[in-house]
Each structure stands twice: as C-alpha cells, then as structure tokens.
Design a protein around this nucleic acid. Structure first.
Lengths: 246, 246
DNA sequence: TTGCACGATTTGTCAGAGAAATAGCGGGGC
DNA sequence: GCCCCGCTATTTCTCTGACAAATCGTGCAA
C-alpha cells in the first residue's frame, strides 16, 4: 500500500531542477502546477493536512514538506487555524526555475510570455555587452562548441535547442555577474519556448545559426557595441517569431 | 523542555519575507545564513538529521522541513547515504528574497555588491522606460506620495528609506511586467544597502530627492527617453556613492 | 581485474499524540 | 446597543519512534 492514488504522470516537459523522485517532491510539483496554472487561485485555501493526506494516501509529513517547498517559493502561506492559502501573484518568485517550469506545464498567458521576452530583451543585450569585455578563452571555447553543435543539428532538433541554451548560458557566465547568471534558467525557459514554437509552427526567414555566429564573433573581438547589437537582433527575431504564433 | 539551545538571536536586519516565527523557519534562516556567508562551503555536508536534531534539541521533523526550504532555494541537495550537501554557488537562487536577505546579514563580497548594482543598472532604466509608457494615474499617485514622504523625512531616516523603496517598487509595478516586478525585492535590497551606506559614511553631493523628482516628472509626462535618462542618473549616483564606500 | 552481492549509513516515509496559535463566538460590563 | 475580554474549536506545528528505500563502499568470487 502507501502508494499515491493520483499520479498525474509526467507531463511532457523538459528539465527538472527539483528531483521530484521523492513523494514530497512530486506533491510539491503537482500542487505547484495547480497553483501557477490557476486551479488554485490566490486566496484559496489548500486542503488541510489530514484531509489531503488521507485523500492521496500519503503521510502528513510528506504533504507538509511539500508545502514547505511551495512556501519557500512564495506560492503559499501557512498559518494555524486559517490553513494554507495561495498568496497573491505579486509575491510569487516567478524567476525561480521550478516555478517557471511549472508555468510552462500549463499554457502560460500571452502577457506572461510577452513579459518574459521583454525581460530577455532587457537582460541579454547587456549581458552580451559585458561578456564581450570580460569573456575568457574558456568562455569563448564553450560558445564556439555550442555554435558547432547548433550548426550540426539545426535548431529544430532537441540537441540543437540544448546547444542554443548552452550558448546563451555561456554568455551569461562570461558576464561575470553572479546575480545575472541566476537568470540563466529563466532565459533558457524562454529560449526553449521560442524554439519549440519555431519548430512546430514556422519556417525561419533567416538562418538563426548565422545570427548566433555574428554574436559569437563580436564577443570574440571584444566588441561590446557589436555584441549588444547582435544580441538585440537575436532576441528581436525570436520575439517577433513568437509574437506571430500567439 | 524542547527548546532550542542555540538561539542566535535576531541579527539587526530589516524585513523578513519568511515568517521565521516557527522553529523550522528559524533553523532554515540560521543554516541559510551560514551557507551564504560561507561557514558551510559548497560541497560540505550538513550535519546528519539525528546529529543535528540532538545537538540543537529539536526534532528531526523540524530540521527536515528547514532543509526542504533551503533545498527549494537551491542552496542544498539531499540524498540518502551521502547526506545533505551545499550545492555549488551557480545553482543558488540569488534573486530569492530570503537568500538575498541572508546574504546581507553577513558582509557581502565587493564583487557581489557590484554585481547587484550592475543588475540594477540594467533593469531599472528599462523599467522606468516602460513605466513612462504604461503607468496609470494610480501608479503616478503612489510615486508622488512616496516622493512626498522622502522629502518630508529625508533619505537618511528609516521612513525615508522605506519611501525610497516604495518609489522604486511603484515604478516596477507601473512597468506592467510580472517577471520584472518580482525583481522588486532585489532592487529594494540594493536600494536599502545604498542608503544605509549613505547614511553612515557620506554626505550626498546632490539632493537625491530632487533627482527622484526629475524621474517622477518624466514618467508623469509619459516621456520614456527622459525617464530612462533620469533613472540612469539615479542609479549611477547610488553606484558611485557606494563604490566610494567599498 | 572485473563484476556482483551484501551490509552499513543516511535520507525518506509513516503513524499517532500533544502543543501552540488564532479566528470566531459568546458573555459580561458599560 | 456597543465594546472588550475570555473561551473554544480548528488548524498548523512539533515531537517521538519506527520502518522503508536508496546507495556508497567493501569484500568476495569468477
């Protein structure tokens, strides 16, 4: 016995930062998805510990640890007597990798997608600029390798998408700015979303690998102005492409 | 009995996002601070559940829930047999409000402070630009009110600092971008840090309230270019001011 | 040398019992 | 009638003790 009744099954999504192998992890995942997709709305009270644990046939301990996780990400707040309630959206840690991933398990709203691209358009050009100034040879090598992978597999493949994320990640790393680097997963999510859309909805008007190469060379030449411009191009293209698909 | 032996006492810090009233909260807080300040280094193993709970005279339950919180913020990772280890810095959610607050309970490194200001210089001017285009009358009213408060109390006071944070928060809100808004607490931390420094180390060469007013009016006039410029001025000033104090 | 089984250790899960906090209700005083 | 205060019921919080599951390392065997 002691098995979860409602195992909703892994939805077809990419990477998991939280293990999710343990029960408390999968409960946190499921509840998290239900919250960010709006099944539970801000102000709603989650099932009480006894109620929930009996319904799903798990221990109160497991449920409580799951709630701790959600609480740490700002999604819920627990208090005696009133129970555990979903907090208002403004307090959610939307940039938390898990929360972001949970958002993408549903159908994120158009505004949210737009917001993410807007953020990307703010962050990445500056990151590219910094990277052009601060990059080391090792950074450059990583970018070059990712570029090769992209060229080899094409952006429509899983491997190509992975390489794309690696490329952008390498740029963030080269910016030598720790707070900026933590946004890498956020950027990745946006990148992934874009390329998925690209894959299934449109043919690209230009060769995206070539565009990446321009950026790569600008950073290689330690030319921050060109790097910023190239990144702006890159993001704008992705943005327009996505916009057409919304 | 059942009382924590080592209650390190509330360090003199500002706001708590996590309640910390409960035992698991204070354990998470203490451990979190110890991790981000480097007492536990990446790769280190945290005390085992039995060991820790006996030493501090708390239950395994409480300790485990604390570890769940830290794990949700990317600070640690638990596995059977090997124990709970501190993860490498790259995986920490530095933009998590709690993690950020914990960083500031110690003496953050110069690079980190610089990185934070760099991020602020990237984010806030764009946010101001967006706010100038999208702000509502209510947003403007909030900013105006915060401005008045700043003028009344001066930036050297606690009330003044609070008003400053409110002002910047209102701008983020007016940008109408959810992911951007979640960076508000990050910005706040940087703002708070700056003004604290200002207060105890230097006299300002210019009237900061007047500078804020320029920004406020640019946004009021729906002038994104002027708003960006004003915000750049504001952040640069804070940055230079802080730089001198490092 | 390589592969595999096993034992030891640590986290993971469960069950049950109180303790603590608190929202809401009701009674007493004015 | 209105306000303040204490009581009660409910929910989370904490503790305890037990067993399950995972996995690293060891040592044996092929």
């Amino acid at each position: 016995m002691r098995q979860r009744k409602e195992q909703t099954g892994p939805r077809t999504t990419g990477l998991n930062t939280t293990s999710m192998k343990r029960i408390h992890g999968s409960i946190a995942h499921d509840l998290g998805v239900d919250i960010v997709t709006g099944i539970y709305k801000p102000g709603d009270t989650l099932p009480g510990e006894i109620e929930f644990s009996e319904q799903l046939d798990v221990s109160r301990t497991a449920y409580r640890e799951a709630v701790r996780i959600l609480s740490a990400k700002g999604l819920v707040e627990s208090r005696p007597r009133t129970g555990t309630r979903v907090t208002e959206k403004e307090r959610w840690n939307l940039l938390d990798p898990d929360v972001l991933a949970w958002m993408f398990e549903g159908e994120p709203s158009v505004e949210f997608i737009r917001g993410l691209f807007e953020l990307r358009m703010i962050i990445e050009p500056s990151a590219a600029e910094l990277a052009a100034v601060r990059r080391s040879g090792a950074d450059l090598a990583r970018m070059g390798h990712a570029l090769e992978e992209m060229a080899r597999h094409g952006l429509a493949t899983e491997a190509g998408r992975e390489a794309d994320q690696l490329f952008h990640h390498a740029i963030l790393e080269a910016s030598r700015n720790a707070p900026l680097m933590t946004l890498s997963s956020t950027i990745s999510a946006a990148v992934s979303w874009t390329t998925i859309f690209k894959q299934r909805k449109r043919k690209l008007p230009r060769d995206p690998v070539a565009d990446h190469r321009v950026l790569y060379e600008a950073i290689g030449n330690s030319d921050p102005v060109a790097a910023r411009a190239a990144m702006v191009d890159l993001v704008r293209l992705a943005q327009e492409d996505t916009e057409l698909s919304l």
